[in-house]
Design a protein around this nucleic acid. Structure first.
Lengths: 111, 111
DNA sequence: TTGACATATTTCTATATGGGAATATATTGA
DNA sequence: TCAATATATTCCCATATAGAAATATGTCAA
């Protein structure tokens, strides 16, 4: 078997940096494909293909306005990622606390 | 160009479901490869390869104990994902609020 | 040293990609 | 109807998988 399809879920779709960049750009507001192309400095066909993947997993929504296609983020689709990572939050906070404590113990020794 | 390597960053490494499962399992505590194999119901070589990818991006750490290799999560490496998704939190909360308001307006109309 | 156990690596293969280039489709205004 | 604008699709190709199978490496205990 090969890697899971980019369109299989949000995790796979967002593995690609360019698609995360596009989503971040869309976070401000709805944008046309041309606006995305200009902002991202990518070829238009590439942008269209990335948008297709994002749409495939429900990360963006589209509506037509004349000849333009206006894309916007569907933030709800990002929640599964946020929630999965949140289950580890306790762990890294614990890690950070350990680092802080060791640093303070070090400082005390140096005084 | 093809897809970015699974080892290029945490986003790519975690796109694979099996690797997320392994990390979730390790969230409880340090585990040997055999324990992971038994829990995940995967072939041992597959587990070793997934662990190699996870280690490659710093998502796990290993230490040897006799003939066993004990793997544990490095939760810090998950933070970039958490933080990236957090930038959209405001948006989905806004979405949820909208859904709630529409539901309430609907209820009021039906009374 | 040898055998058993634990883990890692190699080889193979089908498959899906991302980008580039070219082209197709859709919509508008004249 | 036609040209211009906006977007999508197709074709090509180098590349990196994940899993299966076989094998290699490392460590201990007797």
């Amino acid at each position: 078997m090969a890697r899971a399809a980019t369109t299989s879920d949000a995790f796979n779709a967002l593995a690609e940096r360019r698609r995360r960049d596009i989503l971040s750009y869309l976070a401000m507001r709805e944008r046309s494909v041309t606006e995305i192309v200009d902002a991202m400095e990518m070829e238009q066909p590439s942008v269209s293909k990335h948008l297709k993947v994002l749409k495939g997993v429900g990360l963006v929504e589209v509506r037509r306005e004349g000849r333009q296609m206006l894309y916007k983020v569907n933030a709800m689709a990002i929640r599964p990622l946020h929630e999965w990572t949140s289950t580890f939050e306790r762990l890294w906070k614990h890690q950070l606390l350990g680092i802080k404590e060791r640093a303070e113990a070090n400082n005390a020794r140096k005084q």
